[in-house]
Design a protein around this nucleic acid. Structure first.
Lengths: 195, 195
DNA sequence: AAAAAGCGTTGACATAGATCAACGTTCATC
DNA sequence: GATGAACGTTGATCTATGTCAACGCTTTTT
């Protein structure tokens, strides 16, 4: 059943819908993986084993600095791909952690499965192209935003772009994602309510 | 002759080298375009007409805020693609300016040419995939850097990653690219020399 | 039921970096 | 050869945001 979610998602991203065989391939080789809260999908230094689609739940991607502080680089909810694309594609050790922030259900495939069954599928080429392009655009905007916007403007921007983040993740996570401290975020919110 | 530069570049990016016909296609449809210093390749609000490869020269991509300040988002030198991929691909108005910082020579193609002759070439698919992926990785690192590193660390990082930027562009451009003011950059350099 | 952990808030204080302004060089243009 | 940009430097001051610390409220764990 959860495969239907993935199939529907892919169909939304590509020009001509998946054929029967392609659907069958997905159903056969994408396997469910459950992660309980706090379990890791990927740890710093590891080579990403999985390419994963989030069916249910929430995950965060982050680094940890010398003092143990988490720096959130990405948040993933339902209908997102979670993983370090670079590490998965190139087999290089990842600099990131990814863990489940809520109990989550993914559909995952390993690199071997990818190479054996998906690598040369036309829909995979189209899908990855679309996704990478979109990711690049978002990141360029984010670079621009972090450079030019104040903390308050960045929050407002996030409220518009990903309101679901604000509902699903606690403030200190959002703060880190936005590149500010939880105290600053708290103060900004207090101030915005006044207005 | 300048087409040879482009062909050599593409060959470096793809797995199996360009065929004769593919080379011929490039020679026929990529046309030289010269830009004198300060001329625009793209202006805010325009739809990007060109996909361009820099054969010689230097360009900058930036936004301009209400007070007229430039915010540099990207710098392009020889053997780079210059352009707003999103605007070119989707036909949406660009939020960016791109202009020549030195007299420059590009090889460009229009969207029509792209659609008519390149869109379905295998090497184009491979090339754009490689480039977009690489761009996404760089941007993710840049997001992380702007969030976690001090002004000094960002400069050191740039000196390692793109030493040629520092040689070719004046400090106030570098400063803006790094997300700091020219004064801060100047002070940091003075301080670093002392050490 | 108690203890502990996670989360958000508030206050006092510290600081990196921005802003504004003045000045000296170098370089291009008439 | 003079004039004015463009560029970099330095100083004085300002400000947004970070840091540290304490407190209260939930929620989870034992």
């Amino acid at each position: 059943m959860s495969h239907q979610t993935l199939i529907a998602y892919i169909n939304r991203q590509i020009a001509s819908p998946l054929t029967e065989e392609e659907c069958a391939l997905i159903q056969e080789y994408f396997v469910p993986k459950k992660l309980r809260k706090h379990q890791f999908l990927l740890q710093e230094g590891d080579i990403s084993k999985w390419a994963g689609f989030v069916v249910k739940g929430a995950l965060k991607m982050y680094t940890v600095d010398e003092t143990g502080r988490e720096n959130i680089l990405g948040l993933f909810l339902e209908n997102w791909w979670a993983g370090d694309r670079e590490s998965f594609a190139n087999g290089t050790p990842s600099p990131y952690f990814i863990d489940a922030f809520e109990d989550s259900e993914l559909l995952v495939m390993t690199k071997e499965v990818f190479n054996a069954h998906f690598k040369n599928q036309r829909f995979v080429a189209e899908l990855t192209r679309t996704l990478t392009e979109r990711q690049a655009l978002k990141l360029l905007k984010r670079v621009h935003a972090t450079k030019t916007l104040t903390a308050e403007q960045r929050l407002i921007d996030l409220e518009k772009t990903y309101p679901e983040f604000i509902q699903r993740f606690p403030q200190h996570i959002i703060a880190s994602y936005l590149g500010m401290t939880k105290e600053t975020l708290s103060r900004i919110r207090a101030q915005m309510i006044k207005k």
